[in-house]
């Protein structure tokens, strides 16, 4: 089979003994060249980012404005129109509203099961009051899946009845989520978290043990 292959003569190689020596020189010099390249890589910065424990800036802060992270709802803005609940294709939002004796409609439940949410963004599109929106947070790994059902209503709150232009400004992205989902942030192995805690970097939260 070997004889069927073209002879191992490179272009410009004279063949014969001179060609033989030429091949050896070529091989040796190209191996040296290759070793030099790999050696040079030992002195270059690796492209790998040591997520999550050695990132320069927390990853959520580097995400674009339109990033569809975990949903959060600002109850001061929610009018209880139920548009989001109706739009959701997988029914991961459940809202209950009760009318008390004082004839005020109160939100008694606003739950979002983010373990089922597919981040399609239809709910936040349909929210006319900008109450429901995607945050920039995504690091919510948990041991227990039930922890991923977010309960935004702690105690019944009256629905919003603002006039146009009088609504309070939305709170910063991710702030509400941090309240309803404790321990938001990258999940890290214990030694890595200790190392980070030692460096005193509280900006991106603690991992869940």
């Amino acid at each position: 089979m070997v004889s069927a292959l073209p002879p191992a003569v490179t272009p410009g190689n004279p063949g014969g003994v001179r060609g033989w020596v030429g091949h050896i020189v070529r091989t040796a010099s190209s191996i040296l060249e290759g070793l030099a390249v790999t050696l040079s890589w030992a002195f270059r910065r690796p492209y790998t980012i040591q997520y999550p424990d050695k990132v320069e800036v927390p990853v959520p802060e580097t995400l674009p404005e339109a990033y569809r992270g975990i949903l959060e709802v600002d109850l001061r803005l929610c009018t209880g129109c139920l548009q989001c609940e109706k739009t959701c294709p997988i029914q991961c939002i459940s809202i209950s509203i009760e009318k008390g004796e004082d004839a005020v409609r109160r939100l008694t439940r606003f739950d979002i099961d983010i373990s089922r949410c597919m981040y399609c963004g239809l709910c936040s599109e349909s929210c006319a009051f900008d109450a429901l929106a995607h945050s920039n947070q995504f690091e919510a790994a948990r041991q227990d899946i039930s922890e991923l059902t977010l309960h935004f209503v702690r105690e019944p709150v009256p629905v919003a009845r603002h006039k146009a232009g009088e609504a309070p400004p939305r709170r910063p992205r991710g702030e509400i989520l941090r309240e309803v989902l404790p321990g938001l942030g990258p999940v890290m192995s214990p030694p890595a978290r200790d190392r980070r805690a030692g460096q005193g970097d509280p900006s991106s939260g603690e991992g869940k043990p």
Binding site: L32, E33, L35, A36, V37, L39, S40, F43, R44
Partner: peptide, 16 residues
């Protein structure tokens, strides 16, 4: 050989 090796490695690094 060693000098050529180191010089080539340095050149590869500097080029990038």
């Amino acid at each position: 050989l060693i000098i050529a090796y180191v010089r080539k490695a340095r050149a590869a690094y500097l080029a990038d």
